[in-house]
Amino acid sequence: MTRFQKMIFGLQEFSLLIKDIFAHLGSVKDNWTETIQEMYLIGTKSFFLIFLGGLFIGIILAIETGHQLETFGATAWIAKTVSLGMVRELGPVIAGLLLAARTGAKNTSELGAMQLSEQIDALRAFGASPVEKLVIPRTIAALVMFLPLTLIADIVGILGGMLVSNQTFHSDISVFWNTAVTSLKMKDLFVGFLKPIFFGFFIATISCYFGLTTKGGTTGLGKNTINAVVYSSALILVIDFIFTKVVWELL
């Protein structure tokens, strides 16, 4: 099989997995324990990472734009830049990339190890569906948890920008906060909060797909884990571009 054929075959298998997820979505009610457990693992275990990521991106954004705007005496615009930048673009993308690395790697390595030790075959052999037991709980958990995590990244980023702006550019905190909040329109919030849902869905499904198709021992597991993170991260950037260019213009 050539590389191109393998790619087409992989896309076909991935599409079938997505079809299976939608076909068996109702099974989530039988697997609440697994779903809640995954939500806990994504939510609480990723909180600190997202907090740090959001905070520092907000700080850097405020410093970089602040220095440029200071030359025109327009430091009042820092709040608007940080707020729009975080909510529309950087918050979702940074949270997505960090979660692609953390949750994506976790899903692929877990499912890949289960595949190599025949646990996936055992599920099938005893009449359980790996899609229902393993993939759907992880997908639902990602869909539910990515939005609040992105919201945390957004808020922490704006707060970080606010503190830096106050300390470095002597902006008034209440003016900054007021400008940051009022400059956000419903369209900004809609796009900013729709992105993490798409990111969550694709990170979970891509990582589960690579986990379930692991073969070739520990080398294969390492390769598939890297592939899951790389493909998820690349897709996040592509989806972000589509939202920025196409969806934004349509709204």
């Binding site: 025949e118 055992a122 052999a125 009449g127």
Partner: peptide, 17 residues
């Protein structure tokens, strides 16, 4: 699924969770 309830399997690596 019904067939698999009539046939049990013991895997080489046990495949315990």
């Amino acid at each position: 699924l019904q067939l698999r309830k009539k046939v049990g399997i013991v895997f080489q690596g046990n495949a315990l969770f």
